[in-house]
Amino acid sequence: MPTASTGLHHITAIATDPQRNVDFYQTALGLRLVKKTVNFDSPDTYHLYFGNESGEPGTLVTFFPWPGTPPGRRGTGQTTTVALSVPEGSLGWWRNHLSALGVETGEPVTRSGEEVLTVRDPDGLMLEVAAHPTGDSRPAWEDGTVPVEHAIRGLHSVTLTEAGYEHTATLLTETMGFRCVDEADGRFGFVTGDGGPGARVDVVCAPESPRGLVAAGTVHHIAFRVADDDQQQRWRETLVDKGFNVTPILDRKYFHSIYFREPGGVLFEMATDQPGFTVDEPLLELGRALKLPPWLEPDRATIERALPDLRSPGPDDPVTFDTPQS
């Protein structure tokens, strides 16, 4: 058996306008654009990675921005919420900050002993800002728009909505090394490792809900951390032996990946921690230039013509957002 995953590596969602996507995640949420590349399987669209200063695994929120994509529908067989980790006592600051930018938020609530604030991004993706009572030692990006004492530390958790939770729970606990730590009102909380921020998956059992539709404003897939290539190979063999339809190991340049669908239909990825985002540009220059894998470099001119212009907002740029609610 492979070593249990230590938690979430990244989530990838679908957006529409790439410039608005950059404006929101850099200006409103204070994350760093750590890599500007393309969808390797569809290089006529960007793949944008946001995270902490170095794009550490577990801090990453990434997007395929396809202009003109119709809105998706939240429902079963889908990752319906992405929670981001902030320091305890920061939710009041976040609510005021987002309100000043025209971003509406829900009322703060307490769930599983944690403070949670709900917000949607400009495409309707459901986000939560969550404060773990034991804190989060991961470094925030200190040069962002958010004061470091309130800044996002990385992923906190994801919520899967399922028509039935049992088979998904079995995969998480018997194969992936998670353990169930709480349950209330049809929401089951699973953690791995030390159970801190970035190591939690919630599964909501909602048999009455419609099937979800993956399109704009929804999550495309979620990725879990794998230590190295040897563990990656072991994970693939284990999952195949369990009857899952698993892709070959794919070179994503900044990590190596396999993909499969869990029993409820959510697309899972297992992604290695290495080689990381400084493999093709230095730390201080992350996210500034369009980076392509070697096999797409011969098509650079064609790819660049197909992509819209994209710039990072400056600290004094007036940016506000009209974010959808429910």
Rank of each mutant, 00 (worst) to 15 (best):
T12H: 05
A215Q: 05
P308L: 09
L292S: 03
I14Y: 02
P324W: 07
V204R: 05
Q78M: 15
S326V: 13
S312F: 00
G72E: 12
D316E: 09
G314S: 06
E162I: 10
D228C: 09
M126W: 10
S54H: 00
P18W: 04
T320P: 04
L250M: 14
E297A: 10
F64C: 03
S137T: 13
V38C: 03
G177P: 03
A271N: 03
T69L: 11
G193W: 10
R74P: 03
Y259L: 12
P293T: 08
E237H: 10
T173Y: 12
S157C: 09
L127P: 15
L31Y: 07
G7H: 01
D121K: 11
P87V: 10
I14K: 08
V109S: 09
D309C: 08
G102V: 04
D230I: 06
V191A: 04
D230P: 01
T45E: 05
V82Y: 10
A216G: 05
I303C: 01
P71Q: 10
E183C: 05
A199G: 08
R236G: 02
T16M: 02
M1V: 13
Y49L: 05
D309Q: 13
C205P: 08
D41R: 00
S157E: 08
F63G: 03
G243L: 14
T69W: 06
E285M: 15
R261W: 02
S312D: 03
T218Y: 06
T6H: 12
D41A: 05
